[in-house]
Nucleic acid binder design. Sequence first.
DNA 1: CGGCATCCTGTGAGATACTG
DNA 2: CAGTATCTCACAGGATGCCG
Lengths: 126, 126
Amino acid sequence: MDVAEARFDAFNALCPSRRLLDTIGDKWASLVIVALGLEGPLRYSRLATRIDGVSQKMLTQTLRGLERDGLVTRTVTPSVPVRVDYALTPLGLSLLGTLRHLKDWAEEHMPQVDAARAAYDRGDRV
Amino acid sequence: MDVAEARFDAFNALCPSRRLLDTIGDKWASLVIVALGLEGPLRYSRLATRIDGVSQKMLTQTLRGLERDGLVTRTVTPSVPVRVDYALTPLGLSLLGTLRHLKDWAEEHMPQVDAARAAYDRGDRV
DNA sequence: CGGCATCCTGTGAGATACTG
DNA sequence: CAGTATCTCACAGGATGCCG
């Protein structure tokens, strides 16, 4: 297994695209980025309500990951009670631009995907 | 739970970007698309060797999904033994272009992400 | 308010063996 | 050659309860 694992690690290390996809492919991560992009800096509690269906655990976990990756900043205001704001970094902001490309493709082509899917499920044969 | 689930479905239905991310965020799906993009049509067995570490099960499952979504075609040649070729559709090809945008961002910015990550793990505080 | 620690569960990936 | 079928097991992720 050592050999396989070594190859796998090398593969990941050498493939930035793959690692990017791992990041934005994450359901909550992409939603957080978009939310912060649309509304600017947000408090934790506000993010929680803006992103429908996310659990505390996943929100926190996602934010930690994004912070670690330098995509968002975490600002603690030590008032009582505590206030924590999250915002996109310039890096996160540039990623937002790339996400827009994806969005464009999606809005232009997903209907075709839907049609293909419906046809496939109907069992259409050429 | 009905309410929550209903909202969730509506959310997914109304958000093409999210569904696109679900597709290309899938590890094997994106690798298959890129492999077919780089080398043109490929047989099942060739895909299996080109995509390092994929299991039969996941490869088949991934290809079925991509075929269903109209991104790849599956062509069976009923010789003995059977021969099956997979190729990108025009739709899949256009998606490949979008993936290139992602790749560009990744190659330009992932080093920054790596740096941020290393700093975070080192425990650097501002 | 904004978390972390703990427990619990379901999905889904991998290994293995069999088939048209 | 190109799959399908079955099992097992790990881990992502939800629920809950406590803390600074």
